[in-house]
Design a protein around this nucleic acid. Structure first.
Lengths: 163, 163
DNA sequence: ATTTATTGCATAACATGTTATATAACTTCC
DNA sequence: GGAAGTTATATAACATGTTATGCAATAAAT
């Protein structure tokens, strides 16, 4: 058994730690999405959600909304275009800007996700860390331990069993 | 001004959120390292720290210690070999395993880092989130806001000014 | 009005994580 | 003691983030 240095070093490795947990959480989330048979990546959802919430947005606005850089947004939107979930058109008043909107297929996916998948994911994550409190390092440890014990995809069933 | 969807969606986008914050924290950490004139990447430090703490480790043990997959460890150790901070030799009893140890240069870097850089980084991160408490989503919001207000690299100076 | 600066997006190059798989070295099991 | 399985590492292929930079469209300046 090897010591987990990143955990041991605490604040010093906070960046690595958060990234690592984020990656695991997102991988677990992906599993939930896949089990539901939806052909989409977890990282693409925030883009669809942003448009659903705010109406058509430009690439730059999407990058801001999702909190990544513009080239990253350009790439993900390219994927969503390929998948047929969004549509892109030059803004009428400014030919530089590209307005990205949901297609019917994209809106259907969002509507279905809102009903079926998003609540499930949010509930599973809430089950994992919703009741935590206290210093962040302790909460992160609890989250890592929790994920190792019961993966996210098993956390809805567990809740339902209790009802 | 565009709404931050990832923040708005809370638990639903927790994975993206943690990753995003981790990436920013690590970028800020890198800045501190660069300002100190050290030729090393933030993500390489945990490997050096792991060997420093536990003595020579194999690639697989390093991967475990740092919490990434083995190919990732292989690559980072390759970089550290190039940089001359570590040395790698087949284990005497098992030729498959490669024992990675610190070179003198690597040990010097670790010793210097322990004295000068690591406390600085840990203090800056502690300044950012050490006093936080409460639900994780609130703490994450505070961390993001805090980073946006005063980047990590400015957080030691600020502390020292008060003394 | 035409030059100059700025803005918005695309693209290239790179960083660093992942999964899948090949290969060599050890173990196991008749 | 040799065949078959297992383990440790390396490598390839891919995902998804970044920075740097080019180009076209717009805005600003003289």
């Amino acid at each position: 058994m090897v010591e987990d240095v990143v955990r041991t070093l605490g604040f010093l490795c906070m960046g690595s730690r958060l990234r690592r947990i984020g990656e695991r959480l997102q991988a677990d989330t992906q599993q939930v999405i896949d089990e539901a048979g939806l052909g989409i990546q977890a990282g693409q959802y925030p883009f669809l959600a942003a448009i659903d919430r705010s109406g058509p947005l430009t690439i730059g606005e999407l990058a801001q909304a999702v909190g990544i850089t513009q080239p990253g947004a350009t790439r993900t939107i390219g994927q969503l275009l390929e998948l047929g979930y969004v549509d892109m058109q030059p803004a009428p008043d400014d030919q530089r800007r590209r307005l990205v909107s949901l297609t019917d297929k994209g809106q259907d996916l969002v509507d279905h996700s809102k009903k079926v998948i998003w609540p499930r994911i949010a509930a599973a994550v809430a089950d994992l860390c919703g009741d935590l409190d206290g210093p962040i390092l302790e909460q992160l440890a609890a989250i890592e331990d929790g994920l190792a014990t019961v993966p996210l995809a098993r956390r809805n069933a567990a809740k339902e069993e209790n009802s």
